[in-house]
Amino acid sequence: MLELEGIDVFYGPSHVLHALTAHVEEGEVLALLGRSGAGKTTTLKTVMGWLRPRAGRIRWRGQDISHWESVRIARLGFAMVAQGRRVFPSLSVAENLGIALNPTSPWSLEDVYQLFPRLEERRYQAANTLSGGEQQMLSLGRALVRGPRVLLLDEPTEGMAPAIVQLTHQVVEMLREAGITVVLVEQNLAFALSLAARVAVMNKGQVVYEGRAQEFAAHRELQVQYLGVSTTGLRVGS
């Protein structure tokens, strides 16, 4: 289990996470929802070790990792698909995957190329020459070759064409079936609810609602109350 307990995070003087408490069961997909500015991305960055909590504990399988260096957290089995897809622009596609490759990962480079044939076609191309969708594939592939136990996904469908959204859906399903723990930050509610077992809704740096995804999907009033989804309802596809 991944547990966050009373986490306080600041960006300079501004207090972003307020005694955040949440947990993720091993092997489950948790959708972390909330309006923009609620602190979802900050939460992922804090778990990954990119931000240091000023107070509180982060525990993985009972071990306190709150003040671990990011690289140590990565080597423990955490991987991140960051917002905006962040590929290494100076590296080729093959190098982007190669530096992340963990020999014990169940997914090899060949598996990634099989999953995303476009990447194999472009393996020697610099990553900054890829299209947005291809960069998304690369970002997902890089997470797969880490062989993660916990995958943090930050708005993977943002700005993506329907075909790429579909592909991302398949990858998360595959991870779920492999028993990987996934924390999914997503604005696309239909996408998130179709994958997640549970949802946690954040507001102003705190979790204000936790429940089963099915229940959250069935009750429009919950969505309206916590996300302000009033007129558009569920956005399907992209």
Binding site: M48, M80, F88, L91, R146
Partner: peptide
């Protein structure tokens, strides 16, 4: 290119 991301990739 990106120090944070490199660390998250185990570098």
């Amino acid at each position: 290119d990106d120090r944070e991301l490199a660390e998250a990739c185990g570098v």
